[in-house]
Design a protein around this nucleic acid. Sequence first.
DNA 1: CAGTATCCCCCAAGATACTG
DNA 2: CAGTATCTTGGGGGATACTG
Lengths: 129, 129
Amino acid sequence: MAKAPRRGPYICGIDAALDVVSGKWKGLILWELQAHGVRRFAELRRGLPGVSEKMLTQHLREMEEDGLVHREVYAEVPPRVEYSLTEDGRTLNEALSSLGAWGTDRMRREGLRTVEVAGTVEVPASMGG
Amino acid sequence: MAKAPRRGPYICGIDAALDVVSGKWKGLILWELQAHGVRRFAELRRGLPGVSEKMLTQHLREMEEDGLVHREVYAEVPPRVEYSLTEDGRTLNEALSSLGAWGTDRMRREGLRTVEVAGTVEVPASMGG
DNA sequence: CAGTATCCCCCAAGATACTG
DNA sequence: CAGTATCTTGGGGGATACTG
């Protein structure tokens, strides 16, 4: 059911790091969580235009398994679950910031635009939007 | 035949950057090219344990398309083709270095090992391995 | 609200064979 | 040596329906 946590022995650090951020939405989840600190399931969903519930849950579970995301469940009615970054998630995010800057720069050079996200895109200072 | 060059509009720079390094071997190709400066097809192949000719060719073509890799063909017998990084490839590699350091650190903490590569792994100083 | 449970499709990635 | 061409497959990712 749960996927194999690790893909295999890694060849280098890049390989290992890319493994935990691979997945269509993981970079964005990190970004959302970094920007807002704490997010609920539905908020995350709204922030990731196009993601399905299954994929969001699946990615969140894998990232929890990988120690990047903390999942806090409140025994309330209606149910409430809050997601936030762990220390590892935060340092990963920092390590991703230069990559994000490279990507932003490249989009600018290539004349590419970001997609419009309902409710305005919010960009953490560390990532430069 | 050739794949669509771009996956679509990006949500942020991370998204855009991750797009060009996604693919099982791209990080490693960047790393090999950074370490050696110039590599021939067969050398690259030996440096990427387990890669098939098809995948190597395919990834190389995509990276050329993305402006990360330069392909120099010499009209000789036997044929010779040399691959090297473009300026964009070099800056991407630099942007990946902090991610690589994070990955290396994580492997250390988790007690993971790198796979053994025949002929000893060579690690560029910028990536710390 | 915050998920599971299923079913299905597509394509990245692998194996194998052939060529300029 | 440095590739192409073709066939196959595993599982990532999506759609939809149901539940505590």
